[in-house]
Design a protein around this nucleic acid. Structure first.
Lengths: 202, 202
DNA sequence: CTTCCAACATACCAACTAGTGTGTATCTTC
DNA sequence: GAAGATACACACTAGTTGGTATGTTGGAAG
């Protein structure tokens, strides 16, 4: 019999708290997130939480820096960094955006938290702004590389276009979240795909 | 001496509560909105609040139905309904979007509340979705009228285009709010204006 | 084997906050 | 002008929630 009862593992405990914190914040927002529910979900006690984090705020910051930033890296930055053709990669990423009930209803974790906390807490705002900037910068770099390779039209400004893409993408997710209608998000994916194809050198 | 001390005026009290509630919700979100602060801002006591509204939720609903919906009507629906040229009207409205510190920091009251409450409270979600739908519908109607007058290209679907405009508009406001950089919103206004001009029959 | 510290567990507290109960002043209606 | 209804004022409560104080356990080092 191996590992009948959970052994002590601080690294695992920390990750459980981050995961549960992320889900709870995603569901209720940071202000609405209940530490008690986070502890229940993580199957961890309050003592463990306050051993690993100084405060609810510190846990929230860590969720941004470690969980939300990682999701963005995995979905956007890494695929773009390795892409041969930036437009193909961007279209693939956009098309991979989930239309599931839960995801449409929940919206974008990054934007959710940014909208809630940016005016209220500079610590959150700055961390979330760093993620947005890294996202836009990654798209801009990919577009610029595409221009040099003759794959992307040179008439556009990479960073300006990256910002447009992110804004439109987040805007559609927001509308879909409120209407709870995946067809709106589907329309957004179609539009973004058409726009990306229009950037190709033909 | 006329009206030395504030006389009793239920209509005014109600409006003060709606106004203060709107501002407090705009600042802190619905969940974070403190009834005590709303009462201080409105210069009204708790008895008055619970005379006019059954609960915090009822006040929130009224803020959506009466304040937020009215702001949208005044800024978008009415100008569009009276416009001779929809594209001119839309560009004028977009250009009129405030770049002030406070407005950039605060974002869009409609979208703020929609992002916060849509997954949590069906009453809020449905009311806010009605405002979004009215907004998009007004733009679509104006575009369709413009098509019939030969002012707008017939190749586009009015409702689809209206949704794109709203999504992009809200997306830029969200990014500007998080970055606290009015230049992002300025870029959004430029882009939307260019896009609207591209819809014109030339 | 002992010592020490990280890694928890549990009971408790203090502050906040939506909501209520009761009393009072003002207005309308007959 | 009496009576009922409306429009408040104010003190209080009950529940929630982030945070803390204190105790215990397990593992690693010497």
């Amino acid at each position: 019999m191996l590992e009948a009862k959970a052994k002590r593992n601080p690294q695992l405990t920390r990750e459980r708290l981050l995961g549960a914190g992320f889900l709870e914040i995603y569901h209720s927002g940071y202000q609405g997130a209940d530490l008690g529910k986070i502890l229940l979900r993580a199957e961890v006690t309050k003592g463990a939480l306050y051993h690993h984090f100084d405060s609810k705020e510190a846990l929230g910051y860590a969720v941004v820096d470690e969980v939300i930033a990682k999701v963005t890296r995995d979905k956007w930055l890494d695929p773009l960094a390795q892409a041969a053709d930036p437009l193909v990669a961007l279209i693939r990423i956009v098309q991979a955006t989930s239309l599931s009930e839960a995801d449409v209803r929940g919206g974008c974790p990054l934007n959710n938290l940014a909208q809630e906390m940016s005016p209220l807490d500079e610590g959150f705002r700055a961390r979330l702004a760093a993620v947005f900037l890294a996202w836009r910068t990654a798209i801009a770099h990919a577009l610029k590389a595409g221009q040099k390779q003759g794959l992307v039209q040179t008439g556009i400004d990479p960073m300006d276009t990256a910002t447009l893409l992110v804004a439109t993408y987040e805007g559609y997710i927001s509308l879909a979240k409120n209407s709870q209608d995946p067809r709106i998000l589907q329309a957004g994916k179609r539009h973004l795909t058409r726009y990306l194809e229009s950037l190709r050198v033909s």
